[in-house]
Amino acid sequence: MSKLEDAKEKWPAAIHELTIGALAADGGTRTSTVTVGGAAALPFMHFEGPTPNRPVIAMEIWDCEPPEWSEVVTDAIGDAIKSPTEWAKKCVEEFGADLICLRLMGTHPDFGDKSPEEAAQVVKDILEAVSVPLVIWGCENDAKDNEVLPRCSEAAKGECCLMGTVTEDNYKTLVASCLADGHSLIGLSPIDINIAKQVNILVSEMGFPLDRVVMYQTSAALGYGIEYPYSIQERGRTAALGGDKMMAQPVICMVGSEAWRTKEAKATAEEQPGWGDETTRGVFWEFGTAVPLLMAGTDILVMRHPAAVVAVREYIDRLMKTEGV
């Protein structure tokens, strides 16, 4: 029998490596930082090239009590959900979050309309309450984000946060703030690889370093078109490994918010008696959404339910094992 040909791929380039958070020695107040990216092969293909940094889990917290979250999630978090600082602490101390993703939903005009000053104060309070790095995410109302995010950026100056989002149509304000205050950026593009690349070009044109950008190509839940972000991320990753520097940015995905929008996660046992126990079903759905996104090359997973976080972390442990491959 003839010898099988070696089918290993050789890649000439790697994903940019990015560190979020700054230690005291680097002008921040974090006691730990998170480094993502750096992979020189497709996800978990350890035999083809090194993946120096494991994917990380950011736990999602809001600056206000989320009104419509599933009770399965809110019960797991408990009373801490009423206070962003308590919630953040619990995510770090009890649930082991690598970093905190603060979503400023309370600043949305239709959703509390909190002022930029209030938002900046929340950022300060959370930086004081926890010592892991911070992702700061606006309310996705462009006009309001352009008022709020610069104040939050200033409040977190020197902490090397990851701030988002910038889009093709709205990027200049946040790019300028992040440049001035030393943060990294999340570039958002709606399931469109061409726009993802365009956002990166636009921010780099303003002098923003491409190795301080993370791509968010929007996510989808398992069963709700997750194939689209999967194939877009995969295409972007192969382009990056092939040498396209405009696509060589690490990727972030909103796993929890997508998974917990589905009826499969939210429906009670009373509503859907055939679907099994509601307290575990949604956790499985969040886990099942995270797995394909990990396979597609997601570097930062933003998650909600602590049990799903534990399951995904263990899964990443297994995927990162390199012995015997």
Binding site: N200, I201, E205, K245, M246
Partner: peptide
Amino acid sequence: NTIYSNSYIQAYRQS
């Protein structure tokens, strides 16, 4: 061989 974007010429040169 490369991914399209509206500024693909610029992207090539910047890379």
